Every structure is written in structure tokens, then in C-alpha cells.
Simulated scan of single mutants.
Amino acid sequence: MTEQPSDFDPDSREEREVAGEAATDRDEFLSLMGHTYRGELSRTTSWRTRIDRTTNWAVVLTASLLTWAFSTDTRPHYVLLVGVVMVTVFLGIEARRYRVYDIWRSRVRLLEENVFANALDPEGVEQSNWRELLSSDLREPTIKTPAVEAVGRRLRRVYFPLLSVLVGAWVVRITVFAESAESAVATAAVGSVPGTAVVGGVAVYYAAVAAATVWPSGRQAKGALESDDDTVGKEWK
């Protein structure tokens, strides 16, 4: 271990503010931004992996339940509803992870837009106060993506198709052996819960999920790939 000089005083203003000198030295500042970018990119990759892991769990669970539920005629239909509940739990976990992931991704995009893009094609920075924004976020990290947007984005990307498959499979399961619509509703009963209540609950749940998927909302998440028609925010909210 390298020994510190005998006159080193960690409480002195000069030592405490040593990093501030990089703000006035162009070479040191650009070097510092390179290290910052690599660190934030590593965090982004780590949280992206966590999001993908939750998605994999949901896909495997859905495939397993579908295989098991249709393997024989005696399989209970409500197992598919249990799958709907579990996939919804995964959706909540992934939405929370997505919100944290966007903290690091927003910093990466801020550096890419205002440092690296401008170095390659110096047409001016996207945000004139990008250093102030980054400094403020490093001092007080904040979640920038609302929970509603995070849930909606994950539904559109992954979870609405999975939930649709499960609900559709459940409808097929209770109707394929039914002689009429009335008997299909009766077949949907779970224990002492009548079939009408179960069907009504599933219909309300699916309608709510569909509304959350298609409901328009202002985009707060920064740095996601979008189509040309989508509006990209220029400032953090």
C-alpha cells in the first residue's frame, strides 16, 4: 500500500476539493468523463440483465403452465389463473427494476448526447446545462420514470402478450368441453366461488391490463429506442 505524505491533511480544503480542479482542466475533465461513462454503462448492463432475468422467468412459467394444463383433460383450469397472478407479480418486479435501470441509462444517454456525439460531430450539445444535470443527479440520484409508465412499457414489450396467452388459454380450457355458454361459465367456478364471479373478475382484470397497455402517456424514460414517430424528451423531469 502506498503511504500518504506526512503532510497530507484530508480535512484541508485543498484536498477535499481536489476533484474540482478537473472542472478547469480540459484534459483531466474529458478523462474523468470517460471513466464515468464506463462505470455508468456497467451499471446499466447489470440492471438490464436483471430485467431480462425476470422476463425469462415469466416466459418459462407461461410455457410450463400451458404444457401442464393441456396435457390431460383432468387438469384444473384455475392453474392458468394462478399463472396470471404469478406473471402479474413478475410484471411488478420488472417495472420496479426498470425504474432503477433508467437511473443509470439516463446518465449514459446524457454523456452520449452531450460529450461523445458532440466530439464526433460538433454541432452543439443537446442540453446546455448537462454538467449541472449530471452533477445534481450524482449528488441526489432520483427515479425519473413514473411507475405507471414503467408498467405500461413492460406490458407493451413483454407482459401483455404473455397475459393474453394465459387468459386465452384459460377461456379455451373452460369452453372446449362445454356444451353451451352457460355450462362454460359454470365450469369456471373455483371452489365456492361461482363461475360468474370468476369470469367477471378475469374480464375486469384483462380490461384493466389492456387499458394500461394502450393508454397514452407522456414519455419520461430517457434513452429507450423508439420509432421515428415517438417524441423524445430533451430534459429530465
Rank of each mutant, 00 (worst) to 15 (best):
A178V: 12
E17G: 00
A203P: 04
R157C: 03
V108L: 00
R219E: 07
G152Q: 04
D121A: 11
Q4C: 09
T142M: 10
W57K: 15
V158I: 14
S71K: 09
A169Y: 11
E140G: 02
S136Y: 04
W57S: 15
A224C: 04
P161L: 09
L120F: 02
F177T: 14
Y205E: 05
G201F: 07
G201A: 03
V18M: 02
Y205N: 02
W236D: 06
L225T: 13
N114C: 02
S183N: 06
T74M: 12
V204Y: 03
A117V: 02
R131M: 14
R153K: 11
V185L: 08
E112N: 03
S42M: 06
G83I: 06
A95V: 08
L66V: 14
L225N: 14
V108S: 01
W130P: 05
M86T: 04
A212T: 07
A95D: 03
D137A: 14
W47Q: 02
M33C: 13
M1P: 09
R153G: 00
L81E: 07
S46I: 11
L120T: 06
L81M: 14
E112I: 07
D230I: 14
V171F: 15
D25C: 09
A224N: 08
V232T: 13
T187Y: 13
P10H: 01
E17S: 15
V87R: 01
V18W: 12
R96G: 05
A169C: 08
A186C: 05
L134S: 04
A63T: 13
S128W: 07
F116C: 00
F116S: 07
S128F: 10
K234G: 14
E140S: 14
S71A: 15
T74A: 13
V172P: 02
E17V: 10
A211W: 15
V59W: 00
L111N: 03
R157G: 00
Y101P: 00
S71W: 09
R16E: 10
W130E: 05
W130L: 07
L225R: 13
R97A: 14
E132M: 12
S106P: 03
D228F: 06
Q220W: 13
R96M: 07
A95Q: 10
R109S: 04
V214L: 10
A147I: 08
I143V: 15
P10M: 00
A212C: 12
V190G: 00
P194L: 07
E140D: 11
L138Y: 05
A23Y: 11
S227D: 15
V89W: 12
V165A: 15
S6Y: 04
N56Y: 11
A212G: 02
S192Q: 14
P216V: 04
V198H: 00
S180N: 03
G233H: 07
A178D: 07
V165W: 02
A178R: 12
D9T: 07
A208Y: 01
